[in-house]
Design a protein around this nucleic acid. Structure first.
Ligand SMILES: [Zn+2]
Ligand SMILES: [Zn+2]
Ligand SMILES: [Zn+2]
Ligand SMILES: [Zn+2]
Lengths: 169, 169
DNA sequence: CTATGTATGTAATATCATAACACGTCAACC
DNA sequence: GGTTGACGTGTTATGATATTACATACATAG
């Protein structure tokens, strides 16, 4: 098992697109999730934990029904609410995000950081990364204020090409 | 019929939330749509025109099925593709926008301006306004570039309270 | 007038999401 | 120990959103 304190991938700002030891990346995220939920008293039950593991397998977004079919294969319930509830829990706990544009979910790559990222969605390989969005959010709020609008949450999702997909093979 | 050259509402930057003569606002938008489609050769057929009129009735987003039921009442086809196709046409022509967060559509308030707005969605009254998003987009692209990601389109949708809904009655 | 492309109508199906209820577990409480 | 209540899970049923495929109408170009 990799040492969590010696990992180039985990230090990368653009984790999803950077080459990294993803097995370690996922393992580490799961540990972090355990710690975070333990700290708040939230219960990372088997279903919820398994859903998070499934999301962590790749830096992509999975639809609720994709998750569900995986769960069903493994002996968990096979009805939509099973998946939706676990996903809702993970999103509420900040362990996963919902990607509006894809009607899909992805594991958070910055667990515990109280962040509100922009999502970078590659239309080539369908990977999803998180990017800092502080400046962008501020800009939106400035414009909104001009209209007297009070922003509570802002969804920012960029569609385009990741580094790997930009260059044709 | 109002004079298109004397309208306080049409000059407001935050048209949707500003008090304005909406009958004129909608009428004017429809004229603009006619002119724009005529100029490009696109055909604003009866269904498409009617869908735009429906969207223009309020500064809100309407689901495809809401639009469809209106169409059906008026003797147009009552199957989903009728609505989805007309809506797709309007979006392609820049006469309407799709609001991802709501799975719904709203008439564009800046037809012909080649804009890429942020949407301000009021959770109180469900009205939707467009706000300038040039700075926000630039910020997103800057961050994306740091990850080597090439942005093609960015969806920015803010949820919050409009001026009218901020103050409790 | 006929061929062509475009728009519309319709049926069927796919995909995404939630409401409502039943059951099991566990810990707090008496 | 039994009761209660909160919570999580399972299941049925339904609702909401969206697309594929095919048939038909209609304009206009040749
Ligand atoms: Zn990784
Ligand atoms: Zn890619
Ligand atoms: Zn108006
Ligand atoms: Zn409002």
């Amino acid at each position: 098992m990799p040492d969590p304190h010696d990992c180039p991938g985990c230090a990368a700002p653009d984790l999803a697109f950077a080459a990294h030891d993803h097995a370690h990346c996922a393992h580490d995220a799961l540990n972090r999730a355990e710690a975070l939920t333990a700290a708040t008293g939230a219960r990372l039950t088997p279903v919820r934990r398994r859903v998070l593991e499934i999301l962590l397998e790749e830096h992509k977004a999975l639809g609720a029904y994709d998750v569900l079919s995986r769960l069903a294969q493994e002996g968990f319930g096979n009805q939509p609410p099973v998946a939706y509830r676990a996903l809702e829990f993970l999103v509420d706990q900040g362990l996963a995000h919902r990607i509006q544009r894809l009607n899909a979910f992805t594991a958070c790559t910055h667990m515990g950081e109280d962040h509100a990222p922009a999502f970078l969605i590659c239309r080539g390989c369908h990977s999803v990364a998180e990017a800092a969005a502080t400046a962008a959010r501020a800009a939106v709020e400035t414009e909104a204020a001009r209209a007297g609008f009070q922003v509570e949450r802002t969804t920012i999702e960029a569609l385009g090409l990741c580094p790997a997909c930009r260059v044709p093979a």
